[in-house]
Computed example of a mutant assay.
Amino acid sequence: MDILALVVTIAVALFFTYTNGFHDSANAIATSVSTRALTPRAALAMAAVMNLAGAFLGSGVAKTVSEGLIETPRGSTGMGILFAALVGAIVWNLVTWYFGLPSSSSHALFGGMVGAALAGGTTVIWHGVVDKVVIPMFVSPFVGLIVGYLVMTAILWLFRRANPHKAKRGFRIAQTVSAAGMALGHGLQDAQKTMGVVVMALVISGHQTYGDPIPVWVKIICAVMLSLGTYAGGWRIMRTLGRKIIELDPPQGFAAETTGASIMFTTAFLFKAPISTTHVITSAIMGVGATKRVNAVRWGVAKNIVLGWFITMPAAALVAALAFGVVNLVAL
């Protein structure tokens, strides 16, 4: 039964990674597709490959997820808590995907972990949740907004005398690089989050101890599932990011993607903080758009997106707590 519970939990974790891929693939490529720098399928293929590569660039975020948010639960109850946490995250991912709302898969996972832990009587490491999740949740969009505005302002100044048509063609090519950077950062951040969950499952089952390196097979399967999900595409969310916030042109798309990628790499390597790629790229698009004129950004759509950010963790936590109640009745 223990082995079966482990296999089922890892399978659900991989399905969460798959939903993360198609839910968040828009983060990396929506701007490139909307500006016609890349065709949708070419963009998705590129994003899938770069997600795969990014998953092997580090392990700091995985350690934060597996050790820094909740105390590792033990036994069959512990596996039930982890299973319920993943169910909460998956349900919220699917709901927000259906409505085309670019909410954060990361915060759905963290909310699910907290909700399931509270329902199962496991200690939540609140200072870790605050330091590594809540503070970055507020700070990273603000940074994305400001940096996106500054990067776009710098581009406008540097190319103020350039031929507009030639400049747009050049930035359309440059977007291939900036979109690849976004996808690489997405793999660095989001594949590691699932690696952290799988490691926690292995620790609960006694197949690994904390401090051991992440097994290579864990890195491979998490990276592959994220890439497959990315290639499946998240067209509903892509439309929201690519068109509904602001009509992007290639220089704006390049500025937003460069901003998002820079923030993701900085937080992953310097702070080991699992930030939301959705928060970063959405706020960067808003900042870039504001350089045109403040009312160029469709702030009504932006308001709905921001509202989704704030309800993601509580909503996923509630679903996870209910899921643990069902698991507890049926299987524990």
Rank of each mutant, 00 (worst) to 15 (best):
Y18L: 13
L332R: 09
Y18D: 03
M152N: 11
V61T: 00
G120I: 06
I305E: 07
W126R: 02
L4Y: 07
R298A: 10
L118Y: 11
V203G: 05
T31W: 04
A11K: 03
F22V: 03
L6Y: 11
G170S: 12
L158F: 12
I237D: 05
L94A: 13
S106G: 09
L156E: 14
A174I: 07
L6C: 09
S25W: 04
G325C: 08
R161V: 13
R169K: 15
T291N: 11
V216L: 15
S32T: 11
Y18Q: 02
A167F: 01
A37R: 00
S140P: 04
V33R: 02
W157T: 12
F16R: 01
A323H: 04
S276P: 03
I10C: 11
Q208R: 14
F159S: 10
A232H: 14
K63C: 01
Q252V: 08
G211C: 07
S227A: 15
G308C: 11
G196M: 06
L248Q: 06
A321R: 00
C222Y: 07
G112W: 07
L101P: 01
L52K: 00
Y210C: 01
W92V: 01
G300P: 08
M286R: 00
A331N: 13
T72H: 05
V87S: 00
T77P: 06
V306D: 06
K132G: 01
V288A: 08
D131G: 08
T282M: 01
I29A: 08
D249F: 13
A317N: 06
P215D: 06
P213L: 08
Y231I: 14
V7P: 09
H207I: 04
F159G: 07
I214V: 11
A296W: 12
T266F: 15
L38S: 10
S105D: 06
G185I: 06
Q208W: 13
F269C: 02
A28W: 06
R236Y: 03
F138Y: 08
E247N: 14
H127E: 15
L52D: 00
M46T: 13
G234I: 02
